[in-house]
Design a protein around this nucleic acid. Structure first.
Length: 148
DNA sequence: GCCAACGTTGGC
DNA sequence: GCCAACGTTGGC
């Protein structure tokens, strides 16, 4: 079982939206490094939900991968902002996962708290200038975060 | 809202 | 293949 961190801007899609919907397809990732991580995700993997580009960024909850290796449907929709005319249904360029809500943490684990607890090598998300929206988290680090 | 940092694009 | 120009991300 692997652990991941996935970013979303809460004014676009927040942990509360996921708590209501219960499941969502993680659409719109158009960065190859992030996509490669999405491709590696396995059923039952856990992912931390991170709120970015907001007043109080940090980890706000937990979700579970319930379907992996899905073609991102938005790549085929010409009216969608994530439409990719170079992608075909025979060989989709962008894969993603279906995630399921697990929990909202009682308190946000803020970026500044994460910076206090971990080094940049231990936790990529705290590295300045990091723009990756999907990244792996080492098991030991993830288990420590779960105790906060 | 600002702007540093980064990824992508495209001319050469 | 290099790299300047550009667009986007995301902390502050």
């Amino acid at each position: 079982m692997n652990y991941w961190l996935m970013k979303s801007e809460p004014n676009v899609y927040s942990i509360n939206d996921l708590a209501q919907e219960k499941q969502t397809i993680w659409e719109g990732v158009r960065n190859y490094q992030a996509r490669n991580f999405l491709r590696q995700m396995q059923l039952e993997d856990l992912a931390f939900f991170y709120h970015s580009h907001t007043k109080n960024p940090g980890i706000v909850g937990l979700m579970k991968i319930v379907k992996n290796n899905l073609a991102d449907p938005t790549q085929f929709d010409p009216n969608n902002q994530y439409y990719d005319p170079k992608s075909t249904s025979e060989s989709p360029r962008w894969q993603t996962v279906l995630v399921e809500f697990v929990q909202i943490f009682p308190e946000i684990i803020t970026l500044s708290k994460l910076k206090q607890e971990f080094s940049e090598e231990q936790l990529l998300v705290i590295k300045k200038g990091n723009r990756l929206s999907v990244m792996p988290i080492e098991k030991k680090i993830a288990e420590k975060i779960l105790t906060f």
